[in-house]
Design a protein around this nucleic acid. Structure first.
Length: 522
RNA sequence: GGCUCCGUAGCCAAGUGGCUAAGGCAGUGGAUUGCAAAUCCACCAUCCCCGGUUCGAAUCCGGGCGGAGCCUCCA
């Protein structure tokens, strides 16, 4: 099966082909760096990181660019509030963003261009648009003239009449049409400012993406991604200005991820709420929004706070367990539930280590998709080997269908169950398994690793919970375990059970296995 | 008001024209265990409602009800 992706532009799944064979140029709208990232900001990076991993695995040479918008009204306002400079604030928040990406194991981004370092590229586009008649200067600003763009609105399915009907149209003095948007904004005193042919000023909201995507990836890119909320007006306007400038298609595929929503309440995490069209409702909505901020909806807390409560790997899995185009309800309970579902994998990795004496995390799995899957005759193990190959195929077929990570995750759980069954069926746990069966197990675990790699999980041991990483604690536990083992030997089960129950109260679990007793915390 | 999208088990969720509707969490029964833990096996849904198209629909079309996003420089 070949790769198919859902394209917002056509509202359907299309076969995936690239401008340049074998190469993928991908652009994701990055953050405006004005406040610490919340979980919603991580959805796009995690999803597109997974998409990049899958494309690379499928044989593409992928270049992925994520911009940093480091000049913007929100930055200016917040810097003033905090009594710092826009530059300092942007720098601090950029670092916060990088930290969070690292924690979430988002490692596939090739370039992070900064808006402030591409002012000239923006000027170039703006000038071309003016020359071609798509834009007009006005009192130090420059506006894009939407009515000159015949197919304006094609991405979000709007047209200019509809836009007029919906807005409380207050046309800013001189704008030719209310939908016309700023390419360049004349700066006021005290604001960051750059010289331009139209006077000192700063970029409009959308121009930085057009400029940086073009500069780094070329006139036509393969994949343009972002949150669903950016489809209009941001992506619509990017598309309009880019295509009007170059006369070429801006992006072949537009991919929009669903938004994280605060659990049990309307509205997305950290965002505004829906509204009706009149002023009274607008005010009510704003009050609602304020109330929510005061209430401090849990999901809108910073990512760093979230990591204090949940393992980042669990959070990543949580984001990938649902299809990327669907909205996700944030809730601590759901993340905990995902955490429980992952425990079975961690148990399996421990089992693997008991059986082979080696760490699952040291397994080296293929980074590229094999041209074809072949199942060699494995004698008595053929049935198992065939089952593993079938599950791998199911995983990859599912990913080929618009990066359906949710469905692929299901195959991963089935693979776990199949491997556990094999371990039990051949009595491998406990040390003295048939070497041939162990070899088959290693290859099956390598498949598991290969697939987990695509999701960006299980690449390194999770950090141990506090208390479980202490050598002294382990020594004490060995002592307790030995005392309990003696009690069990003497059939003194009341003492043995007392020890185990009391340890249970301390969140310590004992596992009595034939060869010895293991313990774990948390 | 306009434009999109969604409604599958107690909860989360994949599947969008055709074998017995993935998977996870929770629950129940069983194997295993001194009892547990871990693991395995089994059970657990006719897909919001109504109408239509079709040999055949959760899947397509129409209507209804319910929910979400955008139309505010939100990822």
């Amino acid at each position: 099966m070949s790769l198919r992706v859902y394209n917002t532009l056509s509202r359907q799944k299309e076969d995936f082909t690239t401008v340049e064979p074998g190469k993928v140029k991908m652009y994701l709208c990055g953050p405006t760096v004005y406040k610490p990232a919340h979980i919603g900001h991580m959805v796009g990076p995690v999803i597109f990181d997974t998409i990049k991993k899958y494309l690379a695995y499928s044989g593409y040479d992928v270049t992925w660019v994520v911009n940093i918008t480091d000049v913007d009204d929100k930055i200016i306002v917040r810097a003033q509030e905090k009594g710092t400079s826009p530059e300092a604030l942007a720098k601090e928040m950029t670092q916060d963003y990088f930290d969070n990406l690292k924690t979430m194991n988002v490692d596939g981004i090739d370039q992070f261009p900064y808006a402030t370092q591409h002012i000239r590229d923006m000027h170039e586009i703006i000038q071309t648009l003016i020359d071609k008649g798509y834009a007009y200067p006005l009192n130090g600003d420059v506006y894009f003239e939407c009515t000159k763009d015949a197919d304006y609105g094609k991405l979000s399915g709007r047209n200019l009449e509809q836009l007029l009907a919906g807005t409380r149209a207050e046309t800013k003095d001189g704008k030719h049409h209310p939908a016309d948007f700023a390419l360049w904004k004349g700066s006021k005193a005290g604001e960051p400012s750059w010289d331009s042919p139209w006077g000192p000023g700063r970029p409009g909201w959308h121009i930085e993406c057009s400029a940086m995507a073009r500069k780094i990836l070329g006139d036509t890119i393969d994949i343009h991604g972002g949150g669903l909320d950016l489809m209009f007006p941001h992506h619509e306007n990017e598309l309009a200005q880019s295509e009007s400038c170059t006369g070429k298609p801006f992006a072949r595929y537009w991919l929009h991820n669903g938004l994280m929503q605060a659990s049990g309440q309307a509205g997305k995490v950290g965002g505004a709420h829906s509204r009706q069209g009149d002023a009274a409702d607008l005010n009510a909505a704003k009050e609602d929004q304020e109330a929510n901020k005061l209430a401090g909806s849990k999901g809108a807390a910073s990512v760093k706070e979230l990591f204090a409560r949940h393992d980042p790997e669990t959070v990543r899995f949580f984001l990938l367990a649902t299809h990327y185009r669907s909205p996700i309800d944030f809730s601590d309970e759901r993340i905990d539930e995902i955490g429980k579902s992952l425990d079975g994998f961690y148990r399996l990795f421990e089992t693997y280590e008991r059986v082979t004496g080696k760490s699952f995390y040291d397994l080296s799995a293929p980074k590229k998709r094999a041209s074809e899957l072949s199942v060699s005759d494995a004698g008595a193990f053929t049935e198992f080997v065939t089952e593993v190959a079938a599950l791998k195929q199911r995983f990859l077929d599912t990913m080929d269908d618009d990066f359906n990570t949710g469905g692929a995750v299901g195959a991963l759980f089935d693979l776990r169950k199949t491997i556990n069954g094999f371990i039990g069926g051949h009595a491998l746990d406990g040390g003295k398994g048939d070497p041939a069966a162990v070899a088959v197990l290693v290859s099956a675990m390598t498949v598991l690793k290969e697939l987990a790699q695509l999701l960006g999980v299980f690449s390194a041991p999770r950090p141990k919970v506090a208390g479980a990483d202490d050598a002294l604690v382990d020594d004490l536990m060995q002592l307790i375990i030995q005392i309990r083992a003696d009690a069990r030997k003497n059939k003194n089960f009341s003492v043995a059970d007392l020890i185990r129950n009391r340890l249970g109260e301390l969140k310590i679990t004992l596992e009595d296995r034939p060869e010895k007793t293991y313990w774990r915390k948390g």
